[in-house]
Amino acid sequence: MEYFVELFLGGLTRGSIYALIALGYTMVYGIIQLINFAHGEIYMIGAFTALIISSVLSLLGLNTIAIFVIASFVAVIYSSAYGFTVEKIAYKPLRHAPRLSALISAIGMSMFLYNYVLLAQTSDFLPFPNNIPEFKFMEPYSHIFSSTELVILTTTTVVMILLGLLIKCTRIGKAMRATAQDRDMAMLVGIDVNRVISVTFVVGSATAALGGVLIASHIGQINYFIGFIAGIKAFVAAVLGGIGSVPGAVLGSFVLGWTESFATGYVSSDYEDVFAFIFLVLILIFRPAGILGRSTAEKV
């Protein structure tokens, strides 16, 4: 039973990281129907930024919590700027081009970004300091659930609630929903659609970067290629939940996290990806729009 709980919590942690990344995929897809393949790279850049900032700050002798908070903050800002710029350079000029062109541009952007990090940094795995403290009250449970995992879960929950409120209640959130449902009509009621798209990229990049910092702290190492794998997994999670749907992306991420966690725990860690993708295929056969996706007819 304890083993089950451990796997359950492990899956939850994993799922919440996927969710932080998947949100960016699903929000961007919802608004401009583009799979932003460079999104995983934003997550990777977030982790690298945090590594550089924490290294510098630890030389200054700050305490670890302060380092963690400042590094996360800077990583989020920096990655958001990347997300914003990527959209302006690689996608905005192709707004009226066929969708395939934008998709190719996204793949190109992804390759450009990880190769750039490869050249600017290194191809080796770099150790990532875990600056998240060990909480006293977590000690009795530390063998099944670490303090880091608790921080990941709490942060993700808070971010999701804030994001939900942003989409549901704010002016920009309403504009995002309207733009996702009918872009031309959104323009006709006076929404600045370019601004909505930029905000979507910035918000998606911010959550992805946060995911990058958190998981790097948990795993303890990063390299230039982590964005690819995490990106693909989060993309699977978004499709699983129903691409374009925000609650769907969160649900899909947890389902994927649990699937992987239980497959690793009860079968073998070699089968982690196998089960994840089998699950994806099954969902797509029986529910092509994803778990919470709307099976919308093509707009005429």
């Binding site: 002016r171 309403k174 309207a178 449902q181 009509m185 959104a186 006709l188 009621v189 929404i191």
Partner: peptide, 21 residues
């Protein structure tokens, strides 16, 4: 516009609200 172009998943109230954006 032609074909009305109501935001399908926004409520009537939210649709009106969008008009006053």
């Amino acid at each position: 516009p032609e074909g009305r172009r109501i935001f399908p998943y926004l409520t009537v109230l939210e649709n009106l609200d969008m008009g006053a954006f």
